[in-house]
């Protein structure tokens, strides 16, 4: 039962970020490769503040502030750069965030991470935690499905198909993309509030590049831009990843094997979806 609840929590934690990312990367075709960079900034903002003040409300407020600020920086870069340049620069921002976390040891404890993170009073048991994560996840599913079907989703798609035509129809790229970046940033804050509490530890290893590869594999495998696909793909890939625990391999082999597996899955998923991931522009 505990393992089932663990799966519920893990899937519930991946769904909001994968839906936010499929809206931005899949539907909007914005080459934002830094969501885990936003995540590391939010995670440390929340739990460093919690450690300093002892208040979850202050921690979450700081997380929202930092998540929004970093998302706005990425949105600014997206408006400033060509799409492929943004891809590279967003990885650079992610790496820079990691460098700061690993070297600002007075505040972050560097590679040791922040241990003994307390859970909120009403989340101390696993069933309650799973229920809270599920409710949060349902909220984000509803929000992203609404966003996808609203003017925002249509404008994102229009901008990705032809920016000049979309602009001629009065669509503001700055406004639409900024909203999408901020929505993704807030979903990431929500994930971070739960994740470190769940394992009682905030550790930089959880924010390295393989985490992003897993996210990218979820979005590409689930059909880019599809909200249903993102949810189903989150469920399937989390089950696959957690299932690997049962293979009897030493930990020094299991980590690279996992990396290898998700690298191959991503490559295969892009191959299968090569006509829909970045489709040829429609011509008149």
């Amino acid at each position: 039962m505990d393992f089932f609840l663990h799966l519920v929590v893990t899937i519930g934690l991946w769904i909001p970020i994968s839906m936010g990312y499929t809206l931005l990367f899949g539907k909007g075709q914005v080459m934002h490769f830094g969501p885990i960079g936003v995540s590391v900034a939010c995670g440390y903002a929340i739990f460093v503040t919690l450690g300093a003040t002892g208040s979850y409300i202050a921690g979450i407020a700081m997380g929202i502030l930092v998540g929004t600020a970093v998302s706005l920086i990425f949105a600014w870069l997206a408006l400033r750069l060509e799409n492929d340049g943004l891809g590279v620069m967003s990885i650079a921002v992610h790496l820079a965030a990691m460098v700061i976390v690993l070297n600002w040891t007075d505040v972050t404890r560097g590679a040791l991470g922040i241990p003994r993170i307390p859970r909120m009073p009403f989340l101390e048991t696993l069933p309650m935690f799973a229920l809270a994560v599920t409710l949060a996840s349902l909220f984000w599913i509803a929000l992203f499905v609404w966003a996808d079907r609203s003017a925002l989703g249509r404008q994102m798609q229009a901008l990705s198909e032809s920016e000049s035509f979309a602009k001629a129809m009065g669509v503001s790229r700055a406004k639409v993309h900024t909203i999408a970046f901020v929505l993704l940033g807030l979903a990431i804050v929500s994930d971070n509030v739960f994740f470190a509490q769940y394992i009682h530890l905030l550790h930089p290893n959880d924010y390295h590049f393989p985490t992003f590869i897993f996210l990218l594999a979820i979005v590409v495998a689930g059909k880019p831009g599809s909200m249903v696909g993102a949810v189903l793909s989150s469920i399937l890939l989390v089950l696959l990843r957690e299932g690997l625990r049962f293979i009897d391999l030493p930990i020094s082999v299991l980590g690279p094997m996992r990396l290898l597996l998700f690298g191959v899955i991503l490559l295969t998923a892009v191959y299968v979806r090569r006509d829909t991931l970045f489709p040829q522009k429609r011509t008149v």
Binding site: Q29, M31, F33, N83, D84, G87, F209, P210, I213, L216, V220, L259, L260, F262, G263, V264, L266, L267, V270, Y271, R274, L277, F278
Partner: peptide, 13 residues
């Protein structure tokens, strides 16, 4: 843009 994603996957491998 596709190779940007596929070369990331290859780099992981």
């Amino acid at each position: 843009f596709l190779p940007l994603v596929t070369t990331i996957a290859f780099s992981m491998i």
